[in-house]
């Protein structure tokens, strides 16, 4: 029931906005089409401006992944995170989640296949992935669009938030479903 309502909401939300906003604007006598093109032009220029910072960040992270440094980092974390209840199959997720959205979904897929989606590891990986974001990508896009190159405390704050989300996932999954 709740799921059906959610599915309906996500199916209807965007089409309704796309039709509803111009319709409402027409009743307010807005020149709808010129307004759209004006905003769209700024959006397009922003999109092009994002490309260089995104290439810079994604190349660095792609090389880091290919170099094996991330696997080494996961191995390094294993003795700490293992006793805390992070299964070996979920470990790579902790390292890769902030760096690559596609990579993280790949790890979750592997865990779901190897341990089963309704296992402890499967649920933990799902919740960890769903409750965090691809931090480096978001920062590159957001700061890149604004032309900001000095992030100050944004990166540590964002990474600590990821860590907190994952730690919370660990606790909540154990409480709700049992270890």
């Amino acid at each position: 029931m709740a799921k059906a309502a959610l599915d309906a909401l996500s199916a209807w939300a965007v089409p309704l906005l796309l039709a509803g906003i111009p319709l409402y604007a027409l009743t307010r006598r807005v020149k709808v089409y010129p307004a759209f093109l004006e905003g769209a032009k700024a959006g397009f220029e922003t999109g092009v401006r994002i490309i260089p910072p995104l290439v810079a960040v994604m190349v660095a992270l792609g090389m880091l992944r290919a170099s094996g440094a991330l696997d080494a980092l996961a191995d390094l974390l294993a003795p700490v995170l293992g006793p805390l209840g992070v299964p070996a199959s979920v470990l790579p997720l902790v390292v890769i989640r902030p760096m690559s959205g596609g990579g993280a979904l790949g790890v979750v897929g592997d865990v779901l296949r190897s341990d089963g989606p309704d296992s402890y590891a499967g649920r933990l990986a799902s919740v960890m992935c769903g409750s965090t974001e691809t931090t480096f990508y978001v920062l590159a896009v957001y700061f890149g669009a604004a032309g900001v190159t000095r992030y100050r405390h944004a990166l540590p704050a964002a990474l600590l938030a990821d860590l907190a989300g994952m730690a919370a996932a660990l606790v909540v999954v154990r409480l709700l479903f049992g270890g």
């Binding site: 307010r28 807005v30 769209a40 700024a42 959006g43 397009f44 994002i50 995104l54 290439v55």
Partner: peptide
């Protein structure tokens, strides 16, 4: 980025309409 360019163009255009309304 190119995927984002399309989305940015569409949604920021729509947002401009919503702003003027």
């Amino acid at each position: 980025s190119l995927g984002l360019v399309g989305l940015l163009t569409l949604w920021l255009g729509l947002m401009r309409v919503a702003e003027e309304a």
